[in-house]
């Protein structure tokens, strides 16, 4: 049975808001070379992981993990620190499919402070503010706009 992405919309004091700083002081080398991370980095940042400390970016050249995009760093925090809740509004819409994929293996809870677009394909996620499970943007939007 697939797991669920749980979303809390709006202000959530217990969520880590500044994921940039949190990532810089919390990430582990093995996160970077994990196959799932490599796929996210290739898709979102169009970059190739060369090793634990080096990523090849077509725009920035050889960079350290701290210089990955804010979106990918937040995705990795969500993937590898399931006990915590992070502000996923640091992720653009191009991260939405990865959020769903992370939660496909194991439940995750994220905080959203904007309307992330999860695309046109059917999906399943739970809005914690109301307890409702939704399957499309058409179902999600009337709920989300009440909170953000």
């Amino acid at each position: 049975m697939s797991q669920l992405l749980n979303i809390y919309y709006g202000d959530m004091p217990e969520a880590v808001f500044n994921t940039e700083v949190f990532f810089k002081n919390s990430y582990a080398d093995e996160w970077i070379v994990d196959d799932f991370s490599k796929q996210m980095i290739a898709d979102v940042d169009k970059s190739c992981v060369l090793g634990t400390g080096v990523i090849d970016s077509p725009v920035l050249g050889k960079i350290a993990p701290e210089r990955l995009s804010g979106g990918v760093k937040t995705l990795m925090l969500i993937k590898f620190m399931p006990e915590m809740v992070f502000n996923a509004s640091t992720c653009g819409n191009n991260c939405a499919k990865w959020l769903l994929q992370i939660a496909a293996d194991e439940d995750r809870t994220v905080n959203l402070r904007n309307i992330m677009n999860f695309g046109e394909d059917p999906f399943e996620l739970k809005v914690l503010n109301t307890g409702q499970v939704v399957h499309s943007m058409r179902e999600l939007l009337p709920i989300a706009i009440e909170y953000v």
């Binding site: 940039e20 979102v44 940042d45 169009k46 725009v59 920035l60 210089r67 995009s69 804010g70 979106g71 990918v72 992720c91 653009g92 819409n93 191009n94 991260c95």
Partner: peptide, 8 residues
């Protein structure tokens, strides 16, 4: 989107 160069 993410990775467009805002933070850079």
């Amino acid at each position: 989107d993410s990775a467009t160069g805002k933070t850079t």
